[in-house]
Amino acid sequence: GIDPFTGEAIAKFNFNGDTQVEMSFRKGERITLLRQVDENWYEGRIPGTSRQGIFPITYVDVIKRPL
């Protein structure tokens, strides 16, 4: 089901994660935001896939912030 505490964002740019914990994505992908890790990073996942990880806040347009 849908978790009411998650947020939502759209990727503004392609992001290629450097490490296992970073999640790569392509511009235009819809991302579920799980939490804000710190002032620069979100943790999120791509709905319908097993992809999950952290990524820079500046790479996405936030539609709804996670609670």
Rank of each mutant, 00 (worst) to 15 (best):
Q52I: 09
R65H: 15
T58I: 14
E22K: 10
E39S: 11
F15I: 01
T6Y: 14
R65Y: 15
P56A: 02
L34V: 09
M23W: 04
Q36M: 10
R65F: 15
W41A: 04
I57F: 06
N40S: 11
I10Q: 05
L34T: 08
Q20R: 11
E43A: 07
A9P: 00
Q52E: 08
P66H: 07
I54T: 06
R30G: 04
L33G: 04
P4F: 14
V60E: 00
S24K: 05
I46M: 05
V21H: 14
L67R: 13
Q20W: 12
W41S: 07
V21I: 12
Q36N: 05
F55H: 00
F5H: 15
T58E: 13
K64D: 09
E22I: 05
R51D: 02
F15Q: 00
T32C: 10
D38N: 12
A9C: 11
L33E: 04
R30D: 02
Y42K: 00
A9Y: 05
E8M: 13
E29C: 03
E29G: 01
Q52T: 09
P4C: 15
P4M: 14
G53S: 01
E29D: 06
P66Y: 04
A11H: 00
L67C: 15
E29I: 03
V60C: 07
P47W: 09
G44W: 02
Y59R: 05
V60S: 01
W41V: 05
P4E: 13
N40K: 11
L67Y: 06
E8V: 13
G53F: 02
G48A: 06
E8F: 14
S24F: 04
S50D: 12
V21C: 15
N14S: 10
D3Q: 12
R35G: 07
F13C: 15
T6C: 14
V37E: 02
E29S: 02
N40H: 14
Y59G: 03
D3A: 11
D3I: 12
F15W: 08
L33I: 11
T32Q: 11
E22T: 08
E39M: 10
G48H: 09
G7V: 09
E43M: 12
P66Q: 06
I31S: 00
P66I: 08
P66A: 06
G48M: 07
E43K: 05
I31F: 01
Q20K: 12
R45P: 00
G28M: 03
T19K: 13
G53H: 01
K12H: 04
F13Q: 12
T49A: 04
V62K: 04
R35F: 07
E39V: 10
F13Y: 13
R65W: 15
P4G: 13
I31D: 00
F55P: 01
T32F: 08
V62E: 04
E39C: 15
M23K: 00
M23L: 15
D18N: 14
D3F: 11
I46E: 01
R45Q: 09
K12R: 11
I57N: 06
M23P: 00
I63M: 07
T49I: 02
R51V: 04
F5K: 11
Y59P: 00
A9Q: 02
L67T: 15
E43F: 14
A11L: 01
